[in-house]
Computed example of a mutant assay.
Amino acid sequence: MKQVHATALVNQPIQERKSYREASFLTFVLKNRALYIMLLPGILFFLVFRYVPLIGSVIAFKDYNIFAGIWRSEWVGFQWFEHLFTYPQFSRLIKNTLLISLYQIVFAFPAPILIAVLMNELKSVLYKRTIQTVLYLPHFLSWAIIYGLAYMMFSEQAGMLNQLVQAWGGEKLQILQSQEYFRTLIVGAGVWKEMGWSAIIFLAALAGISPSLYEAAKIDGANRWKQFLHITLPGLLPAISILLLLKIGNIMDVGFEQVYVFLTPLTIPVGDVLDTYSYRMGIISGQYSLTTAIGIFKSVIGFVLLVLANKVSKSTTGEGLY
């Protein structure tokens, strides 16, 4: 009977089978219409604020004039990309951007993983909740406040650290104005601000690991380290892979506010990145076509790196974004 039915389906005209699939899809949508209605605001948000603005990217190929508008501005092709690539300090911008991103991947990315693993070992629920709350709080502070705290700690005039150094007979340290400490300060502030909040995803992944696996490992004589290597780490691997791939895809974005609030004329040689250069050219100088070209350049580089990293991840760990 099944064989006869399958043969009949194969012999049906293509148009009839297409109509059947469309009817089945409409039936499925109507059956789950409540879910689709709840999904509608999210779809509209991405359409209005993510996809429609992409049309404006065309000004990267035009000499954009705010009075002429997007479509009536003069077409100049790749002029603004050439302007970016021939900028005398372009290599410095790329170097600073990639170095800060690399430091963030090496030092800031593992921090929430470590915090999540340590908090997962806490047995007291009250103590665990308290630690989580304390670690989450910095995420809600603006970067202006973070810089204010850093100024109170490291300022040469009134910083707590320099007061202690001076009390012990040492010389004051110019941490906020020093090129030597700038990148360390940026990355360290980012770790302190975001590690608790970022740990939420890894805590959720740890909650999905069955306790029976740890119980079986204890029976087999596995210590805490072996339990981490053979149970905890494999359980975290999907979340680690996805977040690391997303971080690699955003490697050209180091966080404008994070860098800008700490940037001074003395630290520009080591702190000037694509985002701060884009701010100076776009907001201050009004060269919107150039800043759009910078954005497209960053997006293309991020996309290429994401595709390559995803292939490597799929071939090595079996995990990937797609």
Rank of each mutant, 00 (worst) to 15 (best):
I131F: 15
L246M: 05
L84W: 05
K128C: 08
V312D: 04
I301D: 05
M195Y: 09
G169V: 11
L308T: 11
L176Y: 00
L173G: 12
D220P: 12
K31E: 01
I175E: 05
K62D: 06
E74D: 03
F81H: 01
M1F: 00
V134Y: 15
F109T: 03
G148M: 02
I55F: 15
E319F: 15
L149N: 11
A111C: 05
R280E: 09
K31C: 03
P112Y: 03
L98Q: 15
A158K: 07
N96H: 06
S73L: 01
F297N: 10
S241Q: 07
A23T: 12
F140E: 06
Y103I: 05
S155V: 06
I145H: 04
G249K: 10
R92A: 14
V304M: 00
I59H: 05
N120Q: 11
L321V: 06
L173C: 09
G169L: 10
S91W: 12
S178A: 10
Q179W: 04
A60H: 11
M38Y: 04
G302N: 00
I94W: 09
V304I: 00
A6T: 13
V52D: 07
W192V: 09
M281P: 01
M38L: 03
L47V: 14
P13Q: 14
L305W: 05
E16A: 14
I100L: 07
T97L: 08
G318H: 01
Q104E: 09
F256K: 08
L114A: 11
L118P: 01
L84T: 04
I100W: 03
P234G: 00
M119R: 02
T317A: 08
A207C: 12
L93D: 14
P265L: 05
I66K: 11
V273G: 07
V187L: 06
V52K: 12
P269I: 01
Q163T: 07
F61I: 08
Y103V: 02
A23V: 11
I301M: 00
F49W: 15
V312R: 02
S73M: 00
N65E: 02
M152A: 13
V125W: 11
G170P: 03
L122G: 09
L84M: 08
M252Q: 01
K226P: 04
L185E: 02
G208S: 14
E22K: 10
I186G: 01
Q157V: 03
S315N: 07
A199Q: 01
L30N: 03
V304T: 02
E215T: 12
L114Y: 13
I201D: 02
Y64E: 01
Q227W: 10
L173F: 11
M38S: 04
W192T: 07
S210R: 15
K123T: 13
Y181C: 06
A8S: 14
S24R: 13
Y87E: 14
Q258P: 01
P110T: 03
I296A: 08
D275W: 13
Y260T: 06
S24L: 12
H139A: 06
T292A: 10
P41W: 13
D63V: 02
A293D: 02
T97R: 07
F256W: 13
K62T: 05
V307Q: 03
T184A: 14
A23P: 10
Y64S: 04
Y127G: 08
V312Y: 04
L141Q: 12
